[in-house]
Design a binder for these strands. Structure first.
Length: 522
RNA sequence: GGCGUCGUAGCCAAGUGGCUAAGGCAGCGGAUUGCAAAUCCGCCAUCGCGGGUUCGACUCCCGCCGACGCCUCCA
């Protein structure tokens, strides 16, 4: 099978050949933990997860690493991210978004980072993000990789030794972009352009200390920083880019890796700088063979932003806070019904990673229906299997599964893969045991059917006590419905059906009586 | 201004130099139903605009219009 992806490094589709046959090393830029992760973050994270799962489907042994950025990085002329987070936490505590007692001391950046790290991992796991289950060994924290020869300080020293970095008048250590001829290859920037674009936020005073306007910070001595470490260049904190170079190398254990992923906005400067640092330190001519970037997510046709009111964290969606616009009145109301994590996952992965996907309430509803069909299909298959459900053996030689994988192998074409899967679900299934095995394989990539219904590695279903009570209540109404139906009291029956629907359940008349089923979303 | 991605039915979204342009949602007709739901059967696009190359283009080339991203913290 020919596997190919669009490589941002060369701006073209290239065949993927792993550095070591059968093995794939992948590094994904993870979240900065100063707030809850939003659905745009997860769109790019889940794209990485899909990629990883695709490789596993096709028999590769994948080492996937994603970092947690828990160092607060100073933005020129603005407040530190962790400092901002501290202020936000105080507000969120009042509003109840951050539960009382979750963060004892909002002034302590480590507590804030830890709180949001755990919140992120929780959301990520619910969304079936595999690497989140490999915390902490494959989900390293930047603050744990500052010191030591293999840490950021070590790499900075190496860069100084090799002439790729220098200490400026003010004691700041900078990377010298002129020392690395490959600088600009990924983003298509040239040093001249960077020079001409210099200015903006960067103060003239600061620029004058650098040898080139494109030089970026590796270490900044600052006694007053909210997080600080001792270093040969004084007490201070590391630059933003160095952590990924360091963690990729030390956790994966290679100077050159197969794939590096991230959001498209990271191409410049972050990834460009990572390449310069890693190559500068190792002497290799490349850091990752493939750079694969996910495009931005839009919400209701607009760039997601807090001011537009279309900004959603993953938990906002779970909690039914997505706004629905009434077609007639234009009025916006919240969905009000919880959304199953599998629905959100599906919504975020169902379109190609290199298109600007548009997240909409309608799309979310569509996704819920599709997943519902997958779940129903699985239940139907299981009911047809006599005796032990057991595991049937299936591999990519199966025509449908093979085509599913083949389509994904072409730049991770999920839509195409769904175009194979969904009609197949509709078709005839004379061997339910085999079909179930095929479905499970497909779902090992998509990971969208509820896990407690028997499909491994799926987005987690969270069934709380209150959920169980709701279910019981709805079932009771369904029983009442049956009683009314026996007496042909249709209006009473209909009234109960309305109640059941309003509570977020479907109800179906079957020969064994009315059965209810929770709607997956909306 | 520089670099890059893109424009397929009401919506989402694949794909190909040439048989009937995937699939999903919505919609419509029918079966079924107390009515519904679910299910099943059937219907539903000539691919932004203009030109060129070609026996033949939605698919290649040029131009135009339009959308978007990066170039600054951002997934």
């Amino acid at each position: 099978m020919k596997i190919q992806f669009y490589n941002s490094l060369t701006n073209q589709h290239e065949e993927f050949i792993p550095l070591e046959p059968g093995k794939v090393s992948m590094y994904s830029c993870g979240p900065t933990v100063y707030d809850f992760a939003h659905i745009g973050n997860f769109r790019s994270f889940l794209f990485g997860d899909l990629l990883r799962r695709f490789f596993e489907l096709t028999g590769h042994d994948v080492h996937h690493v994603m970092n947690i950025t828990d160092v607060g990085h100073m933005v020129e002329g603005e407040a530190d991210k962790m400092m901002e987070a501290a202020n936000r936490v105080k507000v969120n505590k009042k509003s109840g978004r951050v539960p009382e007692g979750a963060i004892e001391d909002p002034e302590d950046p480590y507590q804030i980072a830890e709180y949001y790290t755990q919140a992120f991992l929780e959301d990520a796991r619910r969304l079936g993000y595999k690497v989140a289950y490999e915390y902490p060994h494959n989900v390293p924290k930047a603050t744990h990789h500052v010191e030591g020869a293999n840490g950021m300080i070590g790499m900075i020293q190496k860069l100084l030794e090799r002439g790729h970095a220098y200490v400026a008048d003010d004691g700041v250590v900078y990377y010298s972009v002129e020392s690395f001829p490959g600088y600009g290859q990924l983003s298509g920037n040239s040093l001249e352009k960077i020079q001409s674009n210099a200015g903006g936020r960067v103060s003239a005073e600061n620029q004058s200390r650098k040898r080139h306007p494109g030089d970026f910070m590796l270490w900044k001595p600052d006694q007053n920083h909210i997080m600080k470490w001792d270093s040969p260049w004084g007490v201070g904190y590391p630059g933003w880019h160095i952590e990924c170079s360091v963690m990729a190398r030390s956790i994966i254990g290679r100077d050159v890796i197969d794939i590096h992923t991230g959001g498209e906005d990271l191409i410049f400067p972050h990834h460009e700088c990572e390449i310069a640092q890693s190559c500068g330190a190792t002497g290799e001519d490349r850091f990752a063979n493939f750079w694969i970037h996910a495009r931005f997510l839009f919400v209701e046709n607009e760039k997601m932003s807090k001011s537009l009111g279309n900004f959603y964290t993953a938990r906002d969606v779970f909690d039914g806070k997505v706004k629905v616009t009434d077609e007639n009145t234009g009025e916006q109301t919240e969905m009000g019904r919880s959304v199953h994590p599998a629905v959100l996952r599906f919504e975020l992965i169902k379109s190609h990673y290199r298109t600007n996907m548009n997240f909409t309430a309608k799309g979310l509803i569509d996704s819920a229906q599709t997943i519902d069909r997958m779940v129903e299909f699985r239940k139907t298959l299981e009911s047809k299997i006599e005796g032990d459900i057991g595991e049937a053996e299936v591999d990519l030689s199966h025509p449908v599964l093979g085509e599913f994988a083949e389509v994904l192998a072409d730049d991770l074409n999920v839509s195409g893969a769904l175009g194979v899967m969904l009609p197949w679900i509709k078709g005839n299934h004379s061997d339910p045991r085999l079909s179930l095995a095929v479905l499970k394989k497909m779902n090992s990539v998509l990971s969208v059917a509820p896990i407690n219904e028997g499909i491994a590695n799926a987005a987690e279903e969270v069934e709380s006590e209150s959920d169980a009570a709701e279910f019981e209540q709805a079932q009771q109404w369904a029983n009442e419905m049956d009683t009314a139906r026996k007496d042909k009291d249709w209006s009473t029956s209909d009234a109960f059906r309305d109640k059941i629907h309003a509570a977020g359940f479907e109800v179906q008349q079957t020969p064994e009586g009315s059965k209810i089923k929770r709607k997956l979303g909306v």
